[in-house]
Every structure is written in C-alpha cells, then in structure tokens.
C-alpha cells in the first residue's frame, strides 16, 4: 500500500502502528493476490474503452457471483440432495456420476460443496457486520468522546487484540455453548478490535478536517456533525477493508467448524467436511481437496475484489 492510503496516513497522524489486519498475512496468499493484481499487458480486452479488464479480477467476480447464486438458490446449481446418504456408495473417487466423488456417507461432494456455500458466506457476512457495527460504535466513541472514554475503550481493545481471533472466538463458544449463531457472534466479536481501532484512527483524522470545523462553526448540532460529516468520511475506506475482512472471517468460521464447533451433522459445511476428510487423506484425497480449493478460491476472490475497491477509492486504480 502506498502512503496515500487514507487509513495508513490517518494512522500515521494518529501516531499508531499499522493495524494487524485485515490483509491476510499468509505469504502464499499475498503472492496469489499479486498475480491477480498484475495488469495484463497487450491484452485484446484492454482495448475496450478505457477500462482494462484484468482476467484475474474478472474471474474473482464471476466466482463470487457463482457463490452468491449457490448461496441463494443452491438447487439451481445441483439437483442432488446433499443429505442423500447411501453407505454402500461411500468413498467413490471422482467419476462421471459423482464429479467430485462421494464422501464417507456416500453423499455427493459437489452437492455438499454447493449447499455449503450458504453457511460459509453467512459466516463471513454476518460476523463481519457484527464486528463492523460494534467496531464503529466503539471507534467513534473513542475517537470523539472524552479522553477518559477513549482511554478505557482503547485499553479494552488492546486486551482483546492480545488474543488471536480464533482463540477469542473459542473462549466465547466455551462460555455460551455451541451452535451456528453463537459461532457467528463469536467470530464477529473476535473481529471487533480490528474495526474499532481503524474507525478510531480514521475518526481522529476526520475530526480535525476543515469541513468538520466549518460545520461546527456554522452551529450544526453535534449529533448532526457526527452522523453527516464525520461518520461517512471516516467509514468509507473501512467499508472497503471490511470486504477483505469477510474473507478472513470465512477462514475463521471454517477453522471453528473444522474444530467441531460448527453446525452438527449432517449439515453440509466446508470446515466440517475438511475435518472429516483429513482422516482419509491417504485413501480418499477428494474429501479434503475440494473443500480446501473452495475455501481458498472464495477467500482469494473476495480479497482480490476488496483490494481492487481499495485501490479505486484511492484514485489509483489499475
């Protein structure tokens, strides 16, 4: 990221280190994103108007659209029941009748992958919404409130940041029990600190901007200044970063369901498919391979799109 990034520069002015998230730290993932971002030279598609279509990005969009379709209406993509078990058909390798093979209960892996999109996307979206919503409130309160409030909130955030996301989510699940909604909330809460810190840093930048000063001088009500001027300007870059956070939360959700904290069987879920499949790695590789590929592609697509938005918002797209 260039220093022109409003978030980074805001953080710099606020005297803060760069936040730990939300860009995935995995070097392999960074390398893949780098590939997706590389502009294509001499592409015939680049001649269409001003827009340069990057195939990587286009693929990411198409994959995301397919995912959304699978989440909204999985039965349009597959006519096979993801719960139709037939023990005698278990562990069949990919073939013309089962394109991606069958699992340990003889169920079609492709159908389960497609029906598993909804919980995965739901995990990413809802938990990010929770994290963002609470994060905005805490961040605004810290950035605009009195020093005491700021100090209290930021120390709390520091404490929460000391725990890795996954650990924090596990603590919450341990206290409030298992289930899809608890897991969603747990992952959401675990992402609050990241967002709260970004919102606070951004608010500190916007708070002293001339247009805010002008609105205050004109005698606008304080609430109106916050809602009409501070919030929209502070939030924009964070919303974009939140899309990348969705990918991160999908991974956290899959990790939790891999550890057995997701939906109970026989619900199709990518993380639990992986967890079951790992015992059969040596003799039924397809049980692990396909859910892994699905998770990687989903996260890479969402992250690529988010980063593209980020670049555009900085006015230096393409």
């Amino acid at each position: 990221m260039k220093p022109t990034n409003p978030v980074a520069s805001g953080l710099a002015r606020a005297g803060l280190r760069s936040p730990p998230g939300p860009l995935p730290g995995n070097p392999a993932l960074r390398a893949m994103l780098g590939l997706l971002r590389r502009p294509t030279r001499a592409s015939p598609l680049a001649t269409r108007g001003d827009a340069t279509v990057r195939p990587g990005l286009a693929l990411a969009w198409l994959f995301l659209i397919a995912l959304l379709l699978a989440a909204i209406a999985p039965h349009w993509l597959t006519g096979v029941d993801p719960l139709a078990a037939a023990a005698r058909n278990a562990y069949l390798p990919p073939s013309s009748s089962h394109w991606l093979g069958t699992d340990e209960n003889g169920r079609d892996v492709l159908a389960r992958l497609i029906h598993g999109v909804r919980p995965s996307l739901l995990m990413g979206l809802v938990s990010t919404a929770i994290g963002l919503g609470v994060g905005i409130i805490l961040g605004l309160a810290a950035g605009l409130g009195p020093r005491l409030v700021d100090g209290a909130i930021m120390r709390l955030i520091d404490v929460l940041l000391a725990f890795p996301d996954l650990l924090l989510a596990l603590v919450i699940i341990t206290f409030w029990g298992q289930g899809l909604w608890i897991t969603l909330i747990a992952v959401g809460v675990a992402s609050i600190p990241r967002f709260a810190r970004m919102v606070r840093a951004q608010t500190l930048v916007v708070r002293d901007a001339p247009y805010v000063e002008a609105a205050t001088t004109l005698g606008r009500h304080r609430a109106a200044v916050v809602l009409r001027h501070v919030l929209p300007n502070a939030i924009k870059p964070i919303l974009i970063l939140a899309t990348i956070g969705i990918g991160h939360n999908i991974i956290t959700g899959a990790a939790l369901s891999f550890l057995g904290f997701g939906a109970s069987p026989p619900a199709p879920e990518w993380g639990s498919m992986l967890a079951m499949g790992r015992n059969y790695l040596a003799n039924a590789w397809w049980l692990v391979a396909w859910p892994s590929v699905a998770i990687i592609l989903t996260v890479v697509s969402i992250t690529a799109i988010g980063r593209d938005w980020l670049a555009r918002s900085e006015g230096k797209s393409r």
Binding site: L62, T78, V80, D108, A111
Partner: peptide
C-alpha cells in the same frame, strides 16, 4: 483465463446425477 472460467462455471452449473454404484 476464459476457458478456465468456463470450466469452473461448468463445474458449478451442471448437476451430477448418480446411479447407484
């Protein structure tokens, strides 16, 4: 890239029917 996409979409769109093995 486009053919790869076609393959991907094909994989997603077509449902597999399964006679009992």
């Amino acid at each position: 890239h486009w053919s790869r996409f076609g393959l991907l979409l094909g994989l997603l769109l077509v449902s597999a029917c399964s006679p009992d093995a």
